[in-house]
């Protein structure tokens, strides 16, 4: 199992622990805007980009659905496929919100993933840097920021 690659160093240890304890095949930690923070199990930046875009869209839709149903936003999603399962959930560390999406198979179970995800959340809370600004950015180079995080995870495209 390879180590996660991260755009922010402080999430590396908890993400690795989650990956190992919950026996996840792959996973991405991201901001709700879709900006990737860390990943494991992927070798292709384009795959992570798509996953981030889709995960952030699913999260946005689920929150709106929850709101429209006059309830609270939905924070967790689980899809069971024939061979693999997808787990998606929100993790809050202080005022900062993250999304996590992970894939597992028969080597794990939803119950196990939930248990260790709960521990992962607590670890993020504990490790959140004091000077970590909440990721609400002004209208500057938004797309640049999205892409720079991918560069941090995979290395800049075209540069070896």
């Amino acid at each position: 199992m390879t180590n996660p690659t991260v755009a922010e160093a402080w999430v590396a240890a908890p993400l690795k622990r989650l990956m190992e304890d919950a026996r996840l095949i792959s996973g991405v930690l991201l901001y709700p805007s879709g900006r990737a923070v860390g990943q494991f199990g992927f070798s292709n930046a384009a795959d992570v980009m798509s996953i981030c875009a889709l995960t952030s869209a699913i999260n946005a839709s689920a929150r709106e659905l929850g709101r429209q149903l006059d309830g609270k936003p939905f924070y967790e999603m689980h899809h069971a496929g024939a061979e693999r399962q997808v787990f998606m959930a929100r993790a809050a560390a202080g005022a900062q919100e993250f999304l996590f999406v992970g894939v597992f198979d028969r080597e794990s179970s939803l119950g196990v993933v939930e248990i260790y995800f709960s521990e992962f959340q607590k670890a993020l809370e504990k490790l959140l840097p004091e000077n970590q600004a909440v990721q609400v950015r002004p209208s500057g180079d938004f797309e640049g920021e999205l892409n720079r995080s991918l560069d941090a995870l995979f290395g800049p495209i075209g540069k070896k």
Partner: peptide, 13 residues
Amino acid sequence: RRPTAALAAYLYS
């Protein structure tokens, strides 16, 4: 109970 249930089921599998 919750972690026990999840891990016990996992171990049993």
